[in-house]
C-alpha cells in the first residue's frame, strides 16, 4: 500500500475548517433556494434568501410548548451542527488534516450514527405530536440506510487496507475507487442524504406532518438544526472525496483546490437531486434498503475483497 504523507495541522486551524464548512453549508442552502426560486418562476433571485432567514431566525423569539423537554430539544438541534464539525475533523484537505485518526472511517460512521439520537431527541423534546412522528420517521429511515452505508464504507477500507482516511485517498493514485466500486459510491451518497435528513429522506420534516421535527423549533434552535443539516450534507460530500474520488488528485491545481472543487461538485449534485426525487416513505424504503441496497453493498464488498486478494 502506498504511504500517504499527511500533515496534522495545529488545533487552531479548526477555526478555518469550521469557516470552510459553514461556507459550504451556506452554498448548499443558497443553491437550493436559488433552484427553488427558478422553479417557481421567480427568476434569478434566491441566492441570498438563506442569509435573510438566518438574520430573521437570530432575532426571532423562541416559542415553546407546555412541558417541552427543552434540554433534549436543544441537545438535538445544536447537536446537528456540532456533529458536522466533528465529522470534518478527519477529512484531509489535500495534504493537511486536523486529526489523522487511524480509525477515521469508523469515526465518520460514529458521528453519522449520532444523528439517529439527535433527530429523535429534537422530535421528542418538543412535546408535540408532529415532532414525535417526525422523529420516528427518521429512525425508520435510519434502519433502512444505515447498514447499507456501513457496508459501503467497508469497500474503500478493504481496498486501501486501512481505516485511515488519508490512506484511502493515497491508495487511488492509479484508479479512483468510484470507477471500480460505483455501487458503494451510490449507496454512500444515499447514506449521506439520509443522515442529512435531505431530499428523499426529509419525510421526518414533511409538510404532511406540519414540518415534523422542525414543527416546534423556532429562533436559534431552528437555525442550528437547519444549518446542521446543510453542514452534514457538505461534510458527507467532502468525505466522499478522499474515500471515492481520489482525494486531492488532479492536474494543474494544487491538492487542496481539487478537494474543494470535487466537494462542491458532489454537494451541488446532492442539492440539485432534492427536486428530482420524491420523498421515500419510511415504511416502503425499509424494504428497498434491506432487500436491494444491503445485498448490493455486500456484493460490492465481495468484489472488492476478491480484487484485493487476486492482486495480492
Amino acid at each position: 500500500m502506498p504511504e500517504t504523507v499527511l500533515t496534522t495541522v495545529p488545533a487552531g486551524w479548526a477555526a478555518l475548517a469550521g469557516i470552510v464548512l459553514c461556507t459550504l453549508a451556506f452554498f448548499a442552502a443558497a443553491l437550493d433556494s436559488a433552484l427553488s426560486a427558478r422553479a417557481e418562476g421567480a427568476g434569478r433571485g434566491g441566492w441570498l434568501a438563506p442569509a435573510w432567514s438566518t438574520a430573521r431566525l437570530l432575532r426571532q423569539r423562541r416559542r415553546t410548548v407546555v412541558a417541552a423537554d427543552t434540554l433534549l430539544l436543544r441537545v438535538g438541534a445544536a447537536g446537528m451542527l456540532v456533529g458536522s464539525f466533528l465529522m470534518v475533523a478527519v477529512i484531509p484537505l489535500g495534504r493537511w488534516t486536523l486529526a489523522d485518526l487511524d480509525v477515521g472511517v469508523v469515526w465518520f460512521n460514529t458521528v453519522d450514527v449520532m444523528v439517529w439520537a439527535l433527530v429523535w431527541l429534537a422530535g421528542w423534546g418538543a412535546n408535540s405530536v408532529h415532532g414525535l412522528v417526525g422523529g420516528y420517521r427518521f429512525l425508520a429511515h435510519g434502519l433502512a440506510y444505515e447498514l447499507p452505508l456501513m457496508f459501503a464504507l467497508v469497500a474503500p477500507a478493504i481496498a486501501a487496507g486501512s481505516l485511515r482516511v488519508g490512506d484511502a485517498a493515497g491508495a487511488q493514485d492509479r484508479l479512483w475507487f468510484v470507477v471500480w466500486m460505483p455501487v458503494a459510491f451510490v449507496i454512500f451518497l444515499v447514506g449521506v442524504t439520509g443522515f442529512s435528513v435531505w431530499g428523499p429522506f426529509a419525510a421526518a420534516l414533511g409538510a404532511d406532518v406540519a414540518g415534523g421535527v422542525l414543527a416546534e423549533l423556532s429562533g436559534v434552535d431552528r437555525l442550528v438544526m437547519q444549518a446542521g443539516r446543510y453542514a452534514f450534507l457538505a461534510a458527507g460530500a467532502a468525505f466522499s472525496v478522499p474515500l471515492f474520488l481520489g482525494g486531492g488528485a488532479g492536474p494543474f491545481l494544487p491538492e487542496w483546490a481539487w478537494v474543494a472543487v470535487k466537494t462542491v461538485a458532489v454537494l451541488a449534485v446532492l442539492v440539485w437531486l432534492r427536486r428530482k426525487l420524491p420523498v421515500f416513505r419510511p415504511d416502503r424504503f425499509l424494504e428497498i434498503g434491506w432487500v436491494v441496497l444491503l445485498p448490493a453493498a455486500v456484493a460490492q464488498d465481495l468484489v472488492v475483497s476478491l480484487v484485493v486478494v487476486w492482486k495480492g
Binding site: 480509525v103 469515526w107 460514529t110 450514527v113 439517529w116 439520537a117 429512525l139 435510519g142
Partner: peptide, 14 residues
C-alpha cells in the same frame, strides 16, 4: 473506543 460509542448510541436510539 470509537466502535463502543457507535454501537451504544445506535442501541440507545432504538
Amino acid at each position: 473506543g470509537v466502535i463502543t460509542i457507535l454501537m451504544m448510541v445506535m442501541e440507545m436510539a432504538v
